[in-house]
């Protein structure tokens, strides 16, 4: 396929971005890293007539953390920048891991976390950890701004609740309380340049006695969208986790999954791996939570 024809707009402010999105509403896409979009366009899978670039918009790349408020990732913040941010590495190790191992160095330098989410691949590496951390998106459009919980964001492969004319201005991740632990594990046959065949992310927060106050578990690549596992979370919440309980929670994760056979793995393998990875994720998260420092 030859690359389809289109026009590129390079606004400098969010207001101008929103104006352009509104004006070309019928056939427009936001461009930032372009690492997913341009491949789809060359394959003819997307044919927008207008691309609105975020690369010259001031202020969208900021990554900030404040105790109590949590982490805010700007809509144009690069995956590699997020992965390198000290607070992310310290407090959100699952996200930091996803941001340091997915795709390639070059793609991480180009691609954005927001783009990874908006692209809505079932295998999106940042989705599972962000789900586990309870993240929300701040979506803006002309004359409006709303917060969308990530758990409500994905509606299908490549599909989200984002309206035409809306853009993700930032990703907000709640602060991490003491006695928390979290982790993201992904599997693929090759260490890099790969799409995860299965990804599992977990977050645990313990009380002083070691009971689980809050648990979030999320899966990637095993359903049409990245997803949370409420049943598994409830098994652990209010309990003191042990090996048996962790295995039960992992089994609930398997029940939540709806994997398919594809090039990268069979459904049977994926189901088995959800069990194995969920156990490992929970065990590691628990160790971290018990260690007192997240």
């Amino acid at each position: 396929m030859a690359m389809p024809e289109f026009q590129v707009h390079q606004p400098k402010t969010v207001e101008d971005v929103l104006d352009l999105l509104g004006r070309h509403r019928s056939s427009v896409k936001l461009l930032c890293g372009g690492t997913d979009l341009l491949i789809k366009m060359r394959a003819g899978a997307q044919t927008p007539e207008h691309l609105v670039s975020l690369n010259r918009v001031a202020g969208l790349k900021t990554i900030s953390y404040a105790g109590g408020d949590g982490l805010v990732i700007g809509g144009a913040a690069r995956i590699s920048q997020v992965g390198k941010t000290a607070e992310v590495r310290r407090l959100y190790p699952g996200l930091a891991h996803a941001c340091s191992v997915m795709a390639t160095v070059q793609i991480r330098n180009m691609g954005t976390v927001a783009g990874n989410l908006v692209n809505a691949a079932p295998s999106a590496d940042t989705a599972a950890p962000l789900l586990a951390y309870g993240a929300s998106l701040v979506a803006v459009e002309r004359g409006g701004r709303r917060q969308i919980k990530l758990v409500d964001f994905f509606t299908g492969p490549g599909l989200t609740v984002l309206e035409p004319g809306e853009m993700v201005e930032a990703i907000r991740v709640p602060d991490v309380s003491p006695r928390s632990g979290s982790c993201y594990l992904r599997l693929s046959a090759r260490s890099k340049v790969d799409i995860a065949a299965v990804g599992v992310a977990g977050f645990l927060n313990l009380d002083l006695e070691g009971k689980v106050i809050r648990c979030r578990l999320a899966l990637g690549s095993v359903a049409p969208t990245p997803l949370r596992c409420p049943e598994a979370e409830q098994i652990l919440e209010g309990q003191t986790p042990d090996e048996k309980l962790i295995a039960q929670a992992a089994a609930a994760c398997v029940r939540a999954s709806r994997p398919i056979d594809d090039l990268r793995a069979t459904a049977a393998y994926r189901r088995a791996m959800v069990q194995v990875l969920a156990q490992r994720v929970l065990t590691q998260s628990l160790d971290m939570a018990k260690g007192g420092t997240p």
Binding site: V8, L51, S53, V105, Q106, I107, N109, M110
Partner: peptide, 28 residues
């Protein structure tokens, strides 16, 4: 031409990128 092999790597504003997935107009 898909960002998988790195043969087209160049450095733009101090970071390595895949020039096969970068629009020329974005390098203005």
């Amino acid at each position: 031409a898909q960002g998988d092999c790195g043969a087209c790597t160049v450095i733009m504003d101090g970071v390595s990128i895949s020039s096969c997935l970068t629009l020329a107009v974005e390098a203005h």
